[in-house]
């Protein structure tokens, strides 16, 4: 009985730690492209979503918040259930994923999980002053 109790406690502890580690990695923007440093106002974004994605509405709201503050910032949503090929082309493995790119389609950065509006604005080389984060 004690042995089983220890095993169950270990399983729960590992799951909690794995969750913490996963949470810490959420929404971090990583530079991915070797492209030259993009200019302000040049960066656009793609939001990849799936029907089973829990946090996609948050990221959608945050992208919309950046567009509200900076109308020049454009982004497009790609539903992987409808357009799997685009998700494949961009090597997207999970949703939500935001891919930042230049107008010619060159990727400059990407982020998975809940990305804050501030992080989106920073990745798009925009001022974060007027951007309010919804989530």
């Amino acid at each position: 009985m004690i042995e089983r109790l220890v095993i169950v406690a270990a399983v729960v502890a590992v799951a909690v730690l794995a969750g913490r580690w996963w949470q810490a990695r959420q929404g971090r923007v990583r530079a991915t492209g070797a492209a030259a440093d993009p200019q302000a106002g040049e960066v656009q974004a793609l939001l990849f979503t799936t029907p089973t994605c829990r946090t996609c509405p948050h990221v959608r709201a945050n992208l919309a918040a950046v567009t509200t503050a900076h109308p020049g910032f454009t982004w497009r949503e790609v539903d992987a259930a409808v357009d799997l090929d685009t998700a494949r082309d961009h090597r997207v493995l999970r949703a939500p994923t935001v891919v930042f790119h230049t107008p010619d389609g060159t990727e400059v950065a990407r982020a998975s999980g809940v990305v804050s509006a501030t992080a989106i604005a920073t990745a798009a080389r925009l001022s974060t002053d007027e951007v309010c984060t919804a989530a």
Partner: peptide, 18 residues
């Protein structure tokens, strides 16, 4: 279930796209 309860991480949902 522990992952979803404590971190909000739904592993099955994450695997959908994969």
């Amino acid at each position: 279930a522990t992952l979803l309860a404590t971190s909000g991480l739904c592993v099955g949902c994450e695997l959908w796209l994969l």
